[in-house]
Amino acid sequence: MEKSATRDGYGKALLELGRQNKDVVALDADLSDSTRSEYFAKQFPERFFSMGIAEQDMIGAAAGLAFSGKIPYASTFAVFSERAYEFIRNIVSRNRLNVKIAGSHSGIATGEDGKSAQAIEDIAAYRVLPNMVVLQPCDAAECEKMVFALADYKGPSYMRLHRNAVPVIHDSNYKFEIGKGEVLRQGKDAVIFATGTLVHETLKAAEILDKEGIKVYVVNIHTIKPLDSNLVIDLAKKTNYVVTAEDHNVIGGLGGAVAEVLSENYPCLMKRIGMQDMYAESGRPDELYKKYGLDAESIAEEVMKFVSKKK
């Protein structure tokens, strides 16, 4: 299967969007080669603004552009977008301005650079801001759809992107809709809601579980906020065993979001797979996923233990 990183999808789509819509502008904080906003920058230098290593200034400027009718896409690493958190809170989210923030190199999969670059709190941080939409694509094709969908959506958003190539499981016919979960695999014993890179680990885990006679639903949650509550509740009712999987702290991320919805609507047992309120370390992404329990084998093992409580 073809492999590509979500950031590649971002760069490709932004460039194409720039061709189609003259109001689209882009900003970056000296990471345009990594975030792939450089594709847009090279084609449309007059609509690309280099802001230097100054994330607060980048967000404020993006907000001013949005206030003036432009459609700004502001990109940097996920973790450094947090430098501008109070700017995002007080200018972008408070005023419901149409700023699209893209945070690349999220999660421990960022790997060798170590703790400083591995954002594991960004979903939680942005999810609590009123008006904010929080998205995470699982592959480059989905990311392309997301970039275009956001151009038609008016309001603040945070898009969580990734460094590494992952299998491209969607194609150009994929119908993407903000706020709708995507059931990738049918099951009965449990449901696993996964987001971002962990969608792929979860699909592999489902294969392993299948061989053990355990059938699990696999759902791609590309929109963490607004969460597809109906789907979450529906599949919880069908299985009674709910698992979440994310390359993010289990506190406040997808696990937190699903727990919030279920505790008010259909309380049931949950298992949250993700970073257990700790930072990781330097290493290859596959090694890190194994060590911190985010790889397919670890997920399968956890789900087996979890489902065994059923009897």
């Binding site: 404020g60 400027a61 001013g64 552009l65 003036s68 432009k70 700017f87």
Partner: peptide, 23 residues
């Protein structure tokens, strides 16, 4: 033209408007 209250945020916002006006 600007929702203030948090200091240090006005010039960057104005800068964004200025970029848009020039475009």
């Amino acid at each position: 033209d600007f929702a203030g209250g948090a200091l240090g945020q006005g010039i960057c916002f104005a800068l964004g408007i200025a970029l848009a006006c020039r475009l």
